[in-house]
Amino acid sequence: MNRPIRVLVAKPGLDGHDRGAKVIARALRDAGMEVIYTGLRQTPEQIVAAAVQEDVDVVAMSLLSGAHNHLFPKVVNLLKGEGVDDVLVLGGGVIPDDDIPFLLESGVEAIFTPGTPTKDVIDFINTNIKRK
């Protein structure tokens, strides 16, 4: 691909722990991607609005508050509502294994839990990107 992949790194919900999001943002930067970081405590509506305006390839959300089953699918649905169908939605954070099948079924394309090497995330994005 002859252009940088654009990734929105977002923190939905109310937890204030963004170390993970920053580590991912930095790793993606070093992998040659343009990372738009939106900061803490974003509503799903804000995340989707930013994803649209920034024309990103990937929305990567990090959440440690436990509200993932509510907030991740909501972002997926709002994107659909905007007619956005070429964005890869990823989730990360403290997510119990039992919740992962539900999230994948809801349209989140991958969940990365603590301990995932950043290379796995980069490889997943490079392999699964939907736009040329």
Binding site: P4, A25, R26, L28, R29, D30, A31, G32, M33, E34, V35, I36, Y37, T38, G39, Q42, E45, Q46, A49, A50, Q53, E54
Partner: peptide, 25 residues
């Protein structure tokens, strides 16, 4: 790397939902 961290939106969160504002990093 050719990559970047574009972080200006952090300070403009309230504007994201305004239909008459368009922000691009």
């Amino acid at each position: 790397s050719g990559g970047a961290i574009l972080g200006d939106r952090i300070r403009m969160s309230d504007l994201a939902l305004d239909k008459d504002v368009f922000i691009r990093s």
